[in-house]
Amino acid sequence: MHVLRGHYGGVWDLAVTNDTLASCSLDTTVRIWNLATGHCMHVFGGHTRTVRCLIIVEPEWARVEGDKGVILSEQWPKRPMVVSGSRDFSLYVWNLPRDGEPEYKCSHANGPSPISTDNYDNPYFKHQLRGHESSVRVLAARRRMLVSGSYDASVRVWDIITGKCKWVLRGHTDQVYSLSLDPTFTRAYSGSKDNTIRIWNLQTGQCQHTLTGHTSIVIHIGLSPPYLVSASLDATIRFWDIDTSELRYTLPAHASSITCFQHDEVKMISGSNEVLRLWSIRRGRMVRDLLIGTTNMWRIAFEGRWCAAASTRDGKTMLDIWDFSNDPDWLIDPSEETED
Rank of each mutant, 00 (worst) to 15 (best):
residue 10 G to F: 14
residue 69 G to C: 12
residue 68 K to Y: 11
residue 227 Y to E: 03
residue 313 R to M: 14
residue 168 V to I: 13
residue 98 R to L: 14
residue 208 Q to L: 15
residue 146 L to G: 01
residue 84 S to M: 07
residue 216 S to L: 05
residue 87 R to Y: 13
residue 214 H to W: 01
residue 232 S to Q: 09
residue 121 D to I: 11
residue 12 W to V: 03
residue 124 Y to F: 15
residue 191 G to H: 03
residue 93 V to M: 06
residue 34 N to H: 13
residue 101 E to H: 10
residue 44 F to E: 04
residue 81 M to P: 06
residue 92 Y to Q: 06
residue 53 C to A: 09
residue 66 G to N: 12
residue 284 G to W: 06
residue 284 G to F: 07
residue 326 N to C: 11
residue 246 E to T: 15
residue 38 G to C: 10
residue 307 C to D: 03
residue 18 N to Y: 10
residue 202 L to M: 11
residue 299 R to L: 12
residue 12 W to N: 14
residue 149 G to E: 01
residue 143 R to Y: 04
residue 110 N to S: 14
residue 130 R to P: 00
residue 45 G to C: 08
residue 312 T to D: 13
residue 161 I to S: 09
residue 35 L to G: 07
residue 116 S to E: 11
residue 42 H to D: 09
residue 69 G to I: 10
residue 29 T to R: 10
residue 35 L to W: 04
residue 325 S to C: 09
residue 306 W to F: 14
residue 271 G to I: 08
residue 230 S to H: 02
residue 125 F to H: 12
residue 86 S to C: 13
residue 297 M to D: 00
residue 188 A to N: 06
residue 158 W to A: 02
residue 102 P to M: 14
residue 190 S to D: 03
residue 290 L to Y: 01
residue 75 Q to S: 11
residue 105 K to G: 00
residue 51 V to N: 09
residue 69 G to T: 12
residue 71 I to W: 08
